[in-house]
Design a protein around this nucleic acid. Structure first.
Length: 229
DNA sequence: GCGACAG
DNA sequence: ATCTTGTCGC
């Protein structure tokens, strides 16, 4: 497991973080469709926190997109680098997630984030931010609609409804299990929204959440538990 | 002006 | 995110 410190020059205030988002948001690439769903590698990333100790643990789990078998997995721990502020989540998660990704012995392929990409107040959520910093294709799959609105998707798995910021479609509410609350998919970097949804469906053969985030979630929690000091 | 608000 | 056991149901 890798250990990371807060990077030099990392934003310390909300104002600085907003400035970074403003500077990087123009680098998001939206005119690529991304890797074909159901092929190559798909990597889930997630983090867990210990607020008492101000410690954060991240995990990256690489799955074979066809079999959904684990190909590789890494963890990293570090000091919490930013408070939780809605709209600034990336500054809390990215340093440790980058360390976990860097430790992987193989190419991550598509990266699936637990949170949003373009579905964000300034269209630059965690998945978009991570994509710009790594150059990797990324998508965001969130468990809540945040501040956005949507009509109810049909009840069948695969049904979707636009996730709206006013009239702008920033993502999609996608039903991954019959009759179960949808997930909220948005583009991060170098992937189309249609493909982001197709990948999400390919990753949910049995549960509401993608296998990537389920695996990364349990691994980072375990890494946090196994941490001392 | 007062909430609500990814994880 | 996190605090947390059993329990109802397919």
């Amino acid at each position: 497991m890798t250990t990371v410190r807060i990077p030099a020059g990392w934003p310390a205030t909300e104002e600085q973080a907003l400035a970074v988002q403003d500077e990087l948001r123009g680098e998001v690439v939206l005119d690529e469709s991304g890797p074909p769903p159901g092929t190559g590698y798909v990597t889930g990333v997630d983090v867990a926190y210990d607020d008492e100790r101000d410690v954060v643990a991240a995990a990256a789990v690489v799955l074979d997109a066809v079999s959904l078998d684990v190909v590789a997995e890494t963890t990293a721990v570090g000091q919490v680098s930013f408070p939780y502020v809605p709209g600034l989540l990336a500054f809390r998660e990215i340093p440790t997630v980058l360390a976990a990704l860097d430790a992987l012995p193989c190419d991550p392929g598509l990266v699936v984030c637990d949170g949003y990409g373009l579905a964000h107040p300034r269209r630059f959520g965690l998945a978009a931010h991570l994509g710009v910093l790594t150059g990797l294709p990324t998508i965001g799959v969130a468990k809540n609609p945040f501040t956005f609105t949507h009509d109810d998707p049909g009840t069948a798995r695969g049904s979707a409804a636009p996730l709206l910021a006013g009239t702008e479609e920033v993502g999609r509410a996608l039903r991954t299990r019959d009759g179960v609350k949808p997930v909220f998919v948005s583009v991060g970097h170098r992937v189309s929204l249609d493909n982001a949804c197709a990948h999400t469906l390919a990753l949910t053969p049995a549960y509401r959440l993608p296998e990537t985030t389920r695996r990364a979630d349990s691994l980072c929690r375990r890494a946090l538990r196994d941490t001392t000091g």
